[in-house]
């Protein structure tokens, strides 16, 4: 891990038009290669926060800064639209809970994985295809499926294709929204193993939003617990999960243990 931060959130708050608080006064610093978990029940504001962090929703207050290559820390919402869109297909990636939101369902797996390469100018079919095959292999998808459409894939395979589609551009930061949601338990475990391996090997930083403590225990270095839009506790993952200080964190951990 390097000393220079990759992503910085300061006092990030979002209030919806109706006055409903999405998230309030959230701050943290993420370093390259680090994985931050954000947990909380539904309605805790973690999805709103993720939208603010990933440039999709301008926060009502506070700011989000990212270490843009060659430019140092830049306010994400002050980047021009083309700059932000470029980030989205190069240095950033979003793993959606529903792979349909992150894949082109009518484009082959190979085309899906190759898209980011073509978006930044790759024009050699053979090279694009071998790179796509390599990444599909890394997410354990058989080379024979390279020309198949994602809609013929199982949920787990779709999720892995989505991950390959993002990682092919070697992003420095990946946002994950309930990456294992909607998958069978056995498939979840395999996907988590795979994700952990990939994140560690590639040194990519990640922000993982989930209600599932098992996901953060396996993936994240640090953890933030959110409730009613606010961060109630944060620290090293093991520390928070094994010795929660805030009553809400205690409740969250114990309810999982009992379940």
């Amino acid at each position: 891990m390097s000393d220079a931060p990759l992503l910085e959130a300061e006092g990030v708050s979002h209030t919806y038009a109706g006055g409903q608080v999405g998230c309030a006064d959230v701050g943290f610093t993420l370093y390259p290669g680090e994985v931050l978990g954000i947990v909380g029940e539904s309605g805790s504001g973690k999805s709103t926060l993720l939208s603010c962090l990933s440039g999709a929703l301008p926060p009502s207050r506070g700011r989000v800064r990212f270490a843009v290559r060659g430019q140092g820390m830049q306010d994400v919402f002050k980047l021009s639209e083309p700059e932000r869109r470029l980030l989205m297909r190069t240095d950033w990636g979003i793993v959606h809970q529903n792979p349909r939101d992150g894949l082109r369902m009518s484009v082959s797996a190979g085309g899906n994985v190759g898209e980011r390469l073509m978006a930044v100018g790759a024009r050699h079919y053979g090279d694009i295809r071998s790179e796509a095959l390599d990444w599909l292999g890394r997410v354990e998808i058989d080379a024979e499926r390279v020309d198949h459409l994602p809609r013929t894939f199982s949920g787990g395979m779709q999720q892995r294709t989505q991950i390959a589609r993002i990682l092919v551009s070697q992003p420095r930061l990946v946002f994950m929204d309930e990456p294992t949601g909607g998958l069978d338990v056995s498939v979840q475990a395999r996907l988590l193993d795979l994700l952990r391996g990939l994140v560690r090997d590639l040194g990519v930083a990640a922000v993982v939003v989930t209600h599932d403590l098992a996901v953060v225990r396996l993936l994240s270095d640090r953890l933030m617990v959110m409730r009613q839009g606010r961060v109630v506790e944060s620290g090293l993952t093991d520390q928070v999960l094994d010795d929660p200080q805030h009553p809400y964190s205690q409740l969250l951990v114990s309810s999982v243990l009992q379940a």
Partner: peptide
């Protein structure tokens, strides 16, 4: 923004099919 990758994807799909 000269974002033309999508057209290349279409050509890629042609060749792979």
């Amino acid at each position: 923004f000269a974002e033309y990758g999508l057209m290349q994807v279409k050509l890629y799909e042609d060749i792979s099919r």
